[in-house]
Nucleic acid binder design. Structure first.
Lengths: 169, 169
DNA sequence: TTGAAATCGGATTGAATCGATACTATATTA
DNA sequence: TAATATAGTATCGATTCAATCCGATTTCAA
């Protein structure tokens, strides 16, 4: 179905909240109550984010979490990789293989090169979006007009000339 | 892990082969033998592609498959949707919901709008890549220099100013 | 010193999806 | 009529994900 997991959704909520409240330590309980999400699951996600150095944690009473870097320096790609594992659109993509799982076809694959190129572009896509972009985007009305030039995302920029020799339809 | 399924990989191989051999009907058996993929699984994928009108089939002896449209008109997004179901990065995205599954937070979600915007951009990303782009891209050496201006994909174009008011880090 | 609050590290269970296979029906050609 | 090929559906095992639970560790404050 090609969807983000609930872990990523929870991570986005938490990271964006921390981005909006810098210099204040926020506990998992606080966030769970404020956003009406389940505490145990949120804690699992926060553990993953901390383990992968996207958050700093302080234990004990009045403990909680802080962003480990500036919101503009943490990308969606890093966030997803932290809670879902490394992004690998295809098994032949470089990066940590889940189970030594490589493509059976390898060099004989007739679409390997262009698909790897798509994978590379997708990585760029994910790493171009920062937590700051998500946390500080309040332009609610922009969605309907997106793609036609309106809104914060409307400004072109995603045309993808995948294969110049193919005559970009 | 955010990966494409094997069904998509098989679909890409088949669709690209058909794009490269227009005006000739190709059977599932032929493609399975030529590309060393398992015939039953390939047939399952071809059934899905046919059911979703991405290719035309003719039964009987000397039957097989044909693309249902020009390679430049069939996008990666449509292909993935045909074999994996509609692409919905997040559950709150519009489109066929798998099981009436909508976001519990709905309007109270603090990241809903920007995330929906990312979803929309991702849809554009998938629909900008055509089968023709993948089938006729033979520039093997371009991968290493992609992102710096070389290769068929290197030409910028994927900068994503998600939130202009956030100061694009 | 004690207790409460909070994170940390696993381990486990159930549901959903995916890979893989099998079987029957239908259509076309020779 | 026989062989070939697709169409539709159904099933089983493996993997992943959501959800839960447990005990351990750290910190603050009474």
């Amino acid at each position: 179905m090609l969807a983000l997991t609930k872990r990523t959704e929870y991570a986005l909520i938490a990271m964006c909240h921390l981005a909006r409240n810098p210099a204040s330590v926020v506990s998992a309980r606080d966030m769970a109550e404020q956003f009406h999400v389940r505490l145990p699951l949120l804690m699992n996600v926060l553990k993953l984010l901390n383990k992968n150095r996207l958050l700093k944690s302080t234990r004990g009473a009045s403990g909680g979490y802080l962003l480990a870097a500036q919101p503009g320096e943490i990308t969606l790609g890093r966030l997803v990789a932290a809670v879902e594992g490394p992004v690998r659109l295809v098994k032949c993509a470089p990066g940590a293989a889940p189970r030594g799982e490589n493509c059976e076809l390898a060099n004989s694959c007739p679409v390997r090169i262009p698909v790897l190129r798509v994978h590379h572009r997708f990585e760029q896509f994910m790493d171009t979006i920062s937590i700051a972009d998500l946390a500080f985007d309040y332009r609610y009305g922009a969605l309907e007009t997106a793609g036609t030039g309106g809104g914060t995302l409307g400004g072109a920029s995603l045309e993808l000339p995948l294969a110049g020799n193919a005559g970009l339809r």
